[in-house]
Amino acid sequence: AGAAAEARFISSAKGKGLFATKNIRKGETVFVERPVVSSQFLWNALYNYRACDHCLRALETAEENAQRLLGKSSLVLPHPEQCSIRKDLHQQCPRCQVMYCSAECRQAALEQYHQVLCLGPSRDDPTHPLNKLQEAWRNMHYPPETSSIMLMARMVATVKQAKDKEWWIKAFSQFCNKTANEEEEIVHKLLGDKFKGQLELLRLLFTEALYDEHLSRWFTPEGFRSLFALVGTNGQGIGTSSLSQWVHACDALDLPMLQREELDAFIDQLYKDIEK
């Protein structure tokens, strides 16, 4: 069977769209792809939601996820075998201690961008240019978050590390672009009424942390605005939750009626308690 959907170019204004090539059943996986770059939301990371620094897969178990959300360390989830998190596979960068879900993700990050962005012993140094950039972003873009300045940082780092820099620059340029007025609207949505002053501050901090002559246009006021709008237009927020994956796995269990009712009641009450 062929793919359930395919990407097609729509227009320069809309970019590419995803079109079904056949009838799609409920629950069917339409397609799977790896992002060009990804990054955890900065407030999300500050609130100690542990995720792989490369693929964003949850690093905490379903039970740890529920305990954190409830503020209840004594909580025990039934059917722990339904949790898919494999802590024995987790690895960290030996220099800056950021965590990955696997050796494959650690290596992929190292080969694509992490050599440039690794903070080493300066991870907790507030005066490091990258930390200053992230702190400025958090002070401008409060939850609920819709983007991250670190997506742009990883784009720059990817080009800086690449042997074929032009290939990556061309790849990023293929994403949907906007007019100057549309770019301002997007930046305004992300940063609010003070966006022009905030955008310039971000540009200066971004330049201090990451300037590269191959990408000099991205560091000009116009180029930085375009890069910012490109991420705002093409970026996609995703949620990764080991708890929701555990619930989904529990839903698929073949249990006697009484056990099924007890488990469903437990899960319903768990979500109610989390929402309080």
Rank of each mutant, 00 (worst) to 15 (best):
A1E: 11
A3K: 00
A5Q: 07
A5K: 01
A5D: 05
A7Q: 15
F9Q: 05
I10S: 12
A13D: 13
L18C: 12
F19H: 10
R25M: 14
G27E: 02
E28H: 12
V37Y: 04
L42C: 08
A45N: 04
L46N: 02
L46P: 00
N48H: 04
L59V: 07
E60T: 14
E64P: 02
L69N: 09
L69Q: 03
L69W: 01
L70T: 03
L75P: 00
H79Y: 15
C83I: 09
S84V: 12
L89S: 08
H90W: 09
H90T: 12
Q91D: 05
Q91H: 04
C93P: 08
P94R: 03
Q97T: 10
M99E: 15
Y100G: 06
Q107S: 06
L110I: 09
Q115C: 01
L119P: 10
G120L: 13
D124N: 15
D124W: 05
D125H: 12
D125W: 04
P126A: 13
P129V: 11
Q134V: 04
R138H: 09
N139Q: 12
N139S: 06
H141F: 07
H141C: 08
Y142R: 15
S148C: 12
L151T: 05
L151N: 09
L151V: 14
K160I: 09
E166W: 06
E166C: 04
E166V: 11
A171R: 10
S173G: 09
F175E: 01
N181K: 14
E182F: 05
E183M: 09
E184S: 12
V187Q: 09
H188E: 09
H188I: 05
D193E: 13
K194S: 09
G197R: 03
E200C: 04
L201E: 13
L204I: 07
E213F: 01
R217G: 00
T220D: 00
E222M: 05
G223D: 01
S226K: 02
S226F: 00
S226P: 00
L227R: 05
L227A: 13
L230R: 07
V231S: 06
Q236N: 12
Q236M: 11
I238T: 06
I238C: 00
A252Q: 15
L255I: 01
Q259R: 09
Q259I: 04
F266K: 01
F266M: 07
I267S: 04
D268F: 01
Q269H: 03
Y271C: 12
D273A: 04
